[in-house]
Structure formats: C-alpha cells, structure tokens
Design a protein around this nucleic acid. Structure first.
Lengths: 205, 205
DNA sequence: TGTACATCAGTGAACGCGCGTTCACTGATGTAC
DNA sequence: TGTACATCAGTGAACGCGCGTTCACTGATGTAC
C-alpha cells in the first residue's frame, strides 16, 4: 500500500480494499469513508475524487462482490461438466466457500441494506450471478421426464434460498454465527440430495 | 407516549418501541441511543437508568424478538394439530409472516451482528425458538418408517435455513428485497413439498 | 527535444453535526414509624 | 393519618470524538506544438 509520492496511483482500488477490511472487522455499518481514507494513507477529502459519497463506495464494493461471485459460481458449474449432477454439487459448495472466504463481500452484497432501486447496476450484477444458478437448474430440470419437470426458475430460487440460509446462519465468519453439529457443506449437500430425490432425480450412486 | 410528569412511568418499554421504529426505518445500524431517548420524550441520559449501553438495548430487542418468535411459531405448530403435516405447513407460513410483519425484530435477531458469546441470554432465546422447529421436525420424522428416518436435527436445520433464506432474500420489508414471480409463502410451501417427498413422505392429498 | 499549459489527483484546514457517555443535581415515590 | 427520609428515575449541561463534506489550494502528469 506504499504511496509513490503526491499521487497515490491506485487510490480507487485501495479504497475498495480498505472498505473490505473494515467491513470484515466491523460489518457494513462500521465502515466509514474517513477511516477508509486513513488506511489508504490519504487525506479525508481524497476519496471524493473517486466516489460521490460513502454509499457509492459501498455499492461499488457490493457490485464487485457480485461479479466475483458470478465468476466463482461459473467456474464451479463449469458448463455442467463432468456431469450435471456433480457440477451442481460443485456449485453449491462454491456458494458456501465464497460466503466463508469473502465474508466482507458477502456482507456488502446481502446485508448492507443497499436500496436496489437506487443502484440498478447492483441489481443487474446480482441478477447475473443468479443467472448461473438458474442455468444450472435448467440443465438439471432438462434431465427429468417432461411430464414431471418443475419450473427451473422455482428450483433456482429454492437452491439460492437454501444456500443463502445456510451461509448466513452457519457459514458467515463473524461472532453471530450459529454453531452446527456438522459442516455447512454437508448440511447443504444433504438438503440438495433430499430435494432432488423429491423431484424424482434418483441418486446416481 | 404521553409523559405523566417527571417520571415517565414506562420508559424501558418506550425505549424498546422507539428502537424498533428506528430499526424498521433505518436498519439496526441506524438506531442510536440518543434518538431513541428523544422519541421517548426523555433526556439523553435517561436510558442509562435502564440499559447499560446502546448494545444492551439492541440485545434486549433481539431477545424479546426471539421470545415473540417462539410464541408465534408455537401457536402455529399447535402441538401438531390438526395433523402433523398441516401443522408443519402452518409453522412455515408463520415463519414468513413474522419476518414480514415484524421486520425490525427479525432484523435485530438475525442481522444486527450481535456477538452471541457476549449475550448468552440471547443465544438461549434463539435456541428456544429453534426448539419449536426441532420438535415439529421430530414429530414429522416419527411418521416415517424407522429404517428411512432422517436425523430430526438435520431436518430442523434444513427447514430453518430454507425459511430464513426465503425470508431474508424475498420477504423482508425493506428496499433491498428481491422481487419474486410468486409469493414467498408459495415458494416455501413448494420447497417443503418437494423436500418431504424426497424423504418419502407422500403428499397425503 | 523543450516548453507552456490544461487537467488531474491529491492536500489540509475547517465546518457543523450528532453521537455516546459522565456528572452533580432534583423532583417524585414509597415506606417506616 | 402525618412526617422524615431513603430510594429511584429523571434532568440538563457538558465533554471529547469522529464523522461527512466543502473549499481554495497545489503538486504531478501528460499532451500540443
């Protein structure tokens, strides 16, 4: 984070990184513009060159988070390889892995209370991440006989909700996490197995 | 909220109510001790007669929330009447109804980031609410043949997670709620039907 | 290659604000006798 | 029933603090010619 003279060189990114550190240690509400500036080694007025205000920075963090999340899920899904069922499982584990390894991003994305109506680019980034889950759900639905095929959108919403529920109750990295008699990953995997069985997708093993 | 002279008469409750209003409109982070005092019509020093500090008030709101939540779920479950399956459905709908009608409580309970280690009474209140879900899950599991009976605790965790996921993504009352092509209640009910089918509980209808 | 100048990204001092918290205090309440 | 007094729940003024934001400014960068 070394300054190279009067100009910082990379202040915008440094502020985002500082915000992430602050969010990680104090939650989205504990993050302040002034402290982000301080930890980037810059005067309190400098951030205004890059962000309209505090909320704009927070929204940008959330947007970047959704973009990383999308890329992360996409990689795990890997276009349904080696097979749809395995890829689906990978995606679920990736969801939890992201929430655990990037609690600050996750928190900015889902818990900062940013009004989506004021930040259309944020909603769109979130929609793009959800689209991965939806694509995966469509592939899985397509493997069911036509007469008992559930709506893929509904399935995607179910998967998202259970993943988010487990992540925010049991896998977040802060002190309000509940303890659990098993790993969040195992809990999610078991839920998915039962759910898919309910849809008529027999366990291939 | 009329004062009856020098003594307020009911300041403790008035502060809790003020905190709920503030949380409802600005989130748990937007709530301040000073503003709660102001809206209770009392000097900024008065709250210290009833709460050690700001966090103590917030934790008390969350604790009361869990107690109401527990009572609410208990009533909906109604000891498994008229039958276990219907009562289970009632409980699920009650979960969402609580999140929607009491967003401030829900937010204090699950999103305020209160460290559970510092507030054992809060963890206990949460555990008691969860116990309702667990009792209901046990009753449902008991109706399955012994050799394919899943662990009731796991089932309870699944139910809690999917309910919480749907509530916090789609049923919360603020601007960061996602829109949905169906009601949260229908989404949850469909998920539960599929899940129970996966466990081998045939739809009784 | 050198120079003038526009543009950009920072400074630093200042502001008003509301917060959490403390303090010595005082008005009201309730109880012992 | 009356009175003295302990206790309780409030006051109001004050404090130090860190915040978000603004302003006129200045140092650095890059580009036209």
């Amino acid at each position: 984070m070394a300054r190279r003279g009067y100009h910082h060189g990379n202040l915008r990114e440094a502020l985002v990184q500082a915000a992430l550190d602050l969010i990680a240690s104090k939650g989205p509400a504990g993050f302040t513009f002034a402290e982000a500036a301080r930890s980037a080694g810059v005067s309190p007025a400098a951030p205004y060159r890059h962000f309209r205000d505090r909320d704009a920075l927070l929204a940008d963090v959330a947007r970047q988070g959704f973009e990383r999340f999308e890329a992360f899920l996409r990689t795990a899904w890997n276009d349904g390889r080696p097979d749809v069922r395995m890829a689906f499982g990978h995606m679920g584990r990736a969801y939890l892995a992201f929430a655990r390894s990037e609690p600050a991003y996750y928190s900015a994305m889902f818990e900062a209370g940013i009004p989506l109506d004021d930040h259309p680019e944020l909603r769109q980034a979130g929609d793009r991440a959800f689209a991965i889950v939806r694509t995966a759900s469509e592939a899985l639905c397509a493997s069911l006989p036509k007469d008992r095929r559930p709506p893929a959108l509904m399935m995607a919403l179910h998967v998202w909700a259970i993943s988010h529920g487990i992540a925010s109750l049991f896998a977040r990295g802060d002190a309000s996490r509940r303890s659990l008699p098993m790993s969040p990953e195992d809990l999610l995997e078991a839920a998915m197995l039962i759910y898919l069985q309910g849809l008529g997708l027999d366990d291939p093993r």
